[in-house]
Design a binder for these strands. Structure first.
Lengths: 328, 328
DNA sequence: TTGAAAGCGCTAACAC
DNA sequence: GTGTTAGCGCTTTCAA
């Protein structure tokens, strides 16, 4: 990179000191209006841009935030990051993307990068295998705030999640209002706490229902597809389908297309979703929205609060709401 | 952020000079093995991590790369960025995400941030309204290489694109092999050069075909849906459908679901796609793959070449290939 | 209202 | 093989 114009050079050309120039540039109160004007004019003319690396070193504040996510592709984290970026760039923060691929070793590597770059804060979504949080603790040594989101560790940490139980309950309520008898409820990887919580909330809410309920766990989209295919081979076919996530929904919908089952006349469908995939189908799928964008926005402002010295450890939760399609 | 352990502090504790410690840390050849060991041991013990902000200032190299994309959500850029990040983190580069939202003002803002942060390089996908490239030129003043990708400006710049014409041709060939008579070909926003190029290549390849061809441009997914709905109201219905992009495909498929048209018996479908959405349907859609991942990987290595001093301006192009589903 | 100077943490030229 | 020192570009006391 070539050397750019500096405060020093500006000060030379204006016969001013560096400090005066520096102050003028940031609109410091006790600088003469005329001086400010002169400085600003030349700065503009010469395309002066402050060197944020130097500022960062001097003020020990990088104004950079890191986001560690398993992946970007698909369902959720892209929205989350979009939301973060929109908020961040407003306040002059820049966003590092670090992809863990759900690999704890990569996650540790990324945390080291966070420390080396002296990022101002870290948004972290842990991998399913993350047991040991020492590497996150080392960030605390540097007083770099960490905000866990979505997939969060147990324990006393700053975190922010979706209200999983509430989302499952909303779906159950929607199902109750319809006149269905045989509900097939599909959940994700049963090793993930999110699947467990949603499953538990869902089944508990069902205890007093006069409906027949079958629940099942699928790890992948393809597994969900096969599961639905099987379900419709039985004499008693499901007349309602609940999908815990977009991944599951996609698999289930593919099966319904394959079977040529009509929605909602033959089967009702309800999902929990970030909102995009339910609109892909005709009729559009009714879903409980767990908004990644909302999560991102709240997470960002929580981070700002931490950066401004709010040392209290909090667990925040994002509410869901039912979005009506025509699948019910 | 709290002060971390520094080279200076290490040197004090070891009764060595800063330079020796610095050299030992980076495995410089003429440092005694024993000294290296001592330094490394203490560094590890005290969780020393080099301050990349200071290194950046000293070496005027931030090891940060910026990516300017219109959005993350959905179709393409998430894959591109994933691919970039995987390559970048291998070489110690970190990735800034800057979202333009297809707004030229935001784009200019982001370019300013790139200059201020003295990023090592910029990957840029321009907005449809970007006419004036002066703000990109100011990066050249700082010798910050810019690599345009996907949506690129006309003129003599470093750029890397998908082979649009080739992709359209592959789709035409696939269609030729099927026995269809009435082809409806849907393209995207006709103000985008990508739409124009694909449209032109497609129609040119069709001149000697004994098929009937109707082409149309839609700006949004919803427009594509409506367009397909209308097409099937006519006496002569399409028996083949070409979709230029995922956005178009999604809209078209929604219409086909709504109409209850069978694929491929009643209508064949071919798309150009990054690969995810065609697998969402049953039967899976045959598509010409324009791989964002491949684009990302090639783009990254081209960027590295630029950073290593390759001043030659190049226009690179990524080849496509047909991926067979069961929609034809 | 302005200026002089120190120093953030690191690297590298130059000395020994 | 090791040490001394200057300086990257900026902000910020302290002094005038």
């Amino acid at each position: 990179m070539k050397a750019a114009i500096t405060v020093f050079e500006l000060s030379k050309k204006l016969n001013l000191s560096m400090s005066t120039v520096s102050r003028a540039l940031k609109n410091h109160p006790n600088i003469a209006a005329e001086t400010k004007e002169r400085v600003l004019k030349l700065a503009q003319q010469l395309h002066y841009e402050p060197n944020l690396i130097a500022v960062g070193l001097r003020t020990s504040s990088s104004m950079e935030l890191a986001v560690i996510v398993p992946s970007l592709s698909g369902f959720f984290y892209d929205s989350f990051i979009t939301s973060l970026e929109e908020e961040a760039s407003k306040l002059g923060y820049s966003l590092f993307i670090l992809l863990s691929g759900d690999d704890p070793i990569t996650e540790i590597d990324h945390l080291r990068v966070c420390r080396q770059r002296r990022v101002s804060g870290v948004f972290a979504c842990i991998t399913p295998e993350t047991k040991d949080l020492t590497h996150y603790e080392t960030l605390r040594e540097l007083e770099i705030p960490v905000l866990f989101f979505d997939k969060v560790p147990a324990g006393n940490y700053n975190k922010i999640c979706l209200a999983d139980e509430e989302a499952a309950l909303l779906a159950v309520h929607a199902l109750q209002e319809s006149n269905r008898k045989n509900v097939l409820a599909l959940f994700g990887n049963m090793n993930l706490s999110i699947s467990q919580r949603r499953h538990q909330a869902f089944t508990e809410a069902f205890v007093n229902e006069p409906k027949r309920l079958i629940t099942d766990f699928s790890v992948t989209t393809e597994e969900a597809r096969v599961r639905v295919l099987h379900a419709f081979e039985h004499a008693v076919k499901p007349d309602a389908l609940f999908c815990m996530s977009d991944e599951i929904l996609i698999g289930a919908m593919k099966a319904l297309q394959q079977l040529g089952v009509k929605i909602p006349s033959e089967v009702a469908v309800v999902a929990i979703s970030n909102g995009f995939f339910p609109t892909l189908y005709h009729p559009e799928i009714t879903y409980v929205e767990t908004s990644a964008r909302k999560l991102g926005k709240v997470a960002f402002h929580r981070m700002i609060a931490c950066l401004e010295g709010d040392m209290e450890v909090k667990e925040l939760s994002i509410e869901s709401s039912l979005v009506k399609g025509a699948s019910l």
